[in-house]
Amino acid sequence: MKILLIGANGTIGSAVRGELEPRHDIVSAGRKGADVSVDLASPESITAMYRKVGQVDAVVCTAGETYFGPLSGMTPERNELTIRSKLTGQINLVLLGLEHVRDRGSFTLTTGVIMDDPIAGGASAAIAGGAIQAFVRSAAIEMPRGIRINHVSPGVVAESIETYGPYFPGFEPVPAARVALAYRKSVEGAQTGQAYRVY
């Protein structure tokens, strides 16, 4: 399969690439260091990415910026970063990408543990995760041409624990390689409308 992987250079994206690349043709997309440049906050950039890449069998997104900080500091402007990138950015990948995904292809989006298990400073990210989950469940019943859609909800990743560990007291870290298996299940499997939680 030809798979478009957005965020391939991140911690989770790198693990997903390592899991899928032995069996598939991976085209990476991101802000820098990728095969194709894309800014999730810009519908024009997403459209240009799809035009450059052409037809694909699957789209996987492990990217998306969020505001991470206390509710008292979550201004409308800071929250807008999350809305435009993590939330509508991923939704626009689907809306603008439908004609670029082959029959019986798939989309796999990314949410996160915070939508199910809140932490201090995670309200903005939780908004995006919860909304994407609702979108995936609803969109799955209307996807054309047998195209599937799922989302993966990773826990705090072990490889990032030094950076994010203090924000997740008592959470059990999850190896990125285990998270990557959920993306493989979404891409290579047959399910749709699913939430693959890796906590």
Rank of each mutant, 00 (worst) to 15 (best):
residue 103 D to Q: 10
residue 126 A to D: 03
residue 128 A to F: 04
residue 46 I to H: 07
residue 169 P to V: 05
residue 79 N to E: 11
residue 55 Q to A: 14
residue 173 P to K: 15
residue 54 G to T: 10
residue 64 G to R: 00
residue 111 T to D: 11
residue 111 T to E: 10
residue 66 T to V: 10
residue 79 N to G: 15
residue 163 T to A: 13
residue 71 L to V: 14
residue 136 V to F: 06
residue 102 R to F: 02
residue 149 I to G: 09
residue 124 S to L: 11
residue 140 A to S: 15
residue 122 G to V: 05
residue 52 K to Y: 15
residue 142 E to C: 10
residue 62 T to A: 06
residue 107 F to G: 03
residue 145 R to N: 12
residue 150 N to I: 04
residue 81 L to K: 09
residue 129 G to S: 04
residue 49 M to A: 15
residue 129 G to Y: 00
residue 155 G to C: 06
residue 126 A to T: 08
residue 78 R to I: 02
residue 88 T to G: 00
residue 106 S to V: 15
residue 68 F to L: 13
residue 132 I to H: 04
residue 136 V to T: 10
residue 104 R to F: 11
residue 121 G to H: 10
residue 77 E to V: 05
residue 58 A to R: 04
residue 130 G to F: 09
residue 152 V to E: 03
residue 102 R to I: 05
residue 103 D to N: 13
residue 77 E to R: 06
residue 48 A to F: 09
residue 88 T to D: 00
residue 167 Y to K: 12
residue 99 E to T: 13
residue 114 I to V: 12
residue 155 G to L: 08
residue 128 A to H: 02
residue 72 S to M: 15
residue 120 A to D: 13
residue 174 V to T: 15
residue 55 Q to F: 08
residue 139 A to E: 08
residue 152 V to W: 00
residue 79 N to K: 08
residue 98 L to P: 03
residue 176 A to C: 05
residue 85 S to N: 04
residue 152 V to N: 01
residue 108 T to C: 08
residue 94 V to L: 04
residue 51 R to N: 12
residue 58 A to F: 02
residue 161 I to K: 14
residue 135 F to D: 10
residue 56 V to W: 14
residue 90 Q to W: 03
residue 90 Q to F: 01
residue 121 G to R: 09
residue 101 V to F: 02
residue 98 L to F: 00
residue 154 P to M: 03
residue 146 G to M: 09
residue 115 M to R: 15
residue 147 I to A: 05
residue 67 Y to M: 03
residue 141 I to R: 15
residue 94 V to G: 03
residue 53 V to P: 13
residue 100 H to D: 09
residue 60 V to S: 00
residue 99 E to R: 11
residue 84 R to D: 03
residue 120 A to Q: 10
residue 115 M to L: 10
residue 103 D to R: 14
residue 108 T to M: 02
residue 60 V to Y: 00
residue 112 G to F: 03
residue 52 K to I: 13
residue 152 V to D: 00
residue 170 G to E: 09
residue 80 E to M: 13
residue 138 S to A: 14
residue 155 G to A: 02
residue 103 D to P: 11
residue 172 E to L: 13
residue 126 A to H: 05
residue 125 A to T: 04
residue 100 H to N: 12
residue 177 A to V: 14
residue 75 T to Y: 01
residue 82 T to E: 01
residue 78 R to W: 02
residue 148 R to D: 07
residue 158 A to Q: 13
residue 48 A to E: 11
residue 159 E to K: 09
residue 134 A to N: 12
residue 149 I to N: 07
residue 120 A to C: 07
residue 123 A to H: 11
residue 66 T to Q: 11
residue 66 T to F: 03
residue 85 S to E: 01
residue 166 P to H: 06
residue 113 V to M: 10
residue 58 A to I: 06
residue 136 V to S: 06
residue 106 S to H: 05
residue 73 G to E: 09
residue 95 L to V: 08
residue 71 L to R: 02
residue 115 M to E: 13
residue 123 A to E: 06
residue 141 I to A: 12
residue 169 P to R: 05
residue 90 Q to P: 04
residue 178 R to L: 08
residue 78 R to C: 01
residue 68 F to D: 05
residue 103 D to I: 07
residue 170 G to F: 12
residue 158 A to C: 12
residue 54 G to D: 08
residue 169 P to Q: 03
residue 85 S to L: 01
residue 152 V to K: 01
residue 73 G to S: 10
residue 96 L to F: 07
residue 99 E to F: 00
residue 83 I to D: 01
residue 96 L to C: 06
residue 108 T to I: 01
residue 111 T to L: 11
residue 124 S to V: 13
residue 175 P to D: 06
residue 115 M to K: 12
residue 162 E to M: 10
residue 143 M to C: 11
